[in-house]
Amino acid sequence: MRGMAGYRLLVDDRKVGALNLFSDTVGAFDEAAGDTGALLAAFATAALTSASDHDRAETLTRGLESNREIGVAVGLLMAAHGITSDQAFGVMRRLSSE
């Protein structure tokens, strides 16, 4: 290895990886190569940010769906047993841990 350049990849201000470039040619990393590496790192960061945002959106969607199901279950317990929402939620919490 006769040349190397490294670029940090950040998503939401946290390091998630690096783009490391290596060369067998001395002096291969001139200013133009450095600019090209920075551009590649920017595209990689954009792709990683998009993937992270997609994962976050899916997690929030699953949470909302789960919350709706919990709300339905609480309502059914309230209607069936004549209890408050807090009591119904307590029943569900207790049963889920048993």
Score class of each variant (00 low, 15 high):
residue 28 A to K: 02
residue 77 L to C: 01
residue 62 R to Y: 08
residue 11 V to L: 03
residue 79 A to K: 12
residue 14 R to Y: 06
residue 59 T to P: 01
residue 4 M to K: 13
residue 35 D to M: 07
residue 42 A to C: 13
residue 92 M to I: 10
residue 39 L to Y: 11
residue 9 L to W: 00
residue 39 L to F: 10
residue 9 L to I: 05
residue 43 F to D: 08
residue 42 A to G: 13
residue 84 T to E: 10
residue 16 V to K: 03
residue 12 D to A: 15
residue 4 M to G: 07
residue 46 A to F: 06
residue 58 E to P: 07
residue 33 A to I: 01
residue 50 S to G: 14
residue 47 A to I: 13
residue 65 E to F: 10
residue 38 A to P: 02
residue 57 A to L: 09
residue 27 G to P: 02
residue 32 A to W: 04
residue 95 L to C: 12
residue 94 R to C: 14
residue 54 H to E: 09
residue 50 S to I: 07
residue 79 A to S: 15
residue 35 D to L: 04
residue 69 E to L: 11
residue 4 M to H: 09
residue 47 A to Q: 04
residue 56 R to F: 10
residue 8 R to K: 05
residue 13 D to I: 10
residue 56 R to G: 03
residue 16 V to L: 07
residue 96 S to Q: 07
residue 44 A to N: 02
residue 20 N to F: 04
residue 74 V to L: 06
residue 80 A to N: 14
residue 32 A to Y: 05
residue 71 G to S: 05
residue 5 A to E: 04
residue 71 G to A: 13
residue 24 D to V: 12
residue 51 A to N: 15
residue 80 A to C: 12
residue 98 E to T: 08
residue 20 N to E: 15
residue 37 G to F: 01
residue 13 D to L: 11
residue 22 F to T: 06
residue 42 A to K: 11
residue 1 M to N: 05
residue 65 E to Y: 07
residue 88 A to G: 00
residue 61 T to Q: 12
residue 93 R to H: 07
residue 54 H to F: 15
residue 65 E to G: 10
residue 58 E to H: 15
residue 94 R to Y: 12
residue 58 E to D: 08
residue 98 E to W: 11
residue 97 S to G: 10
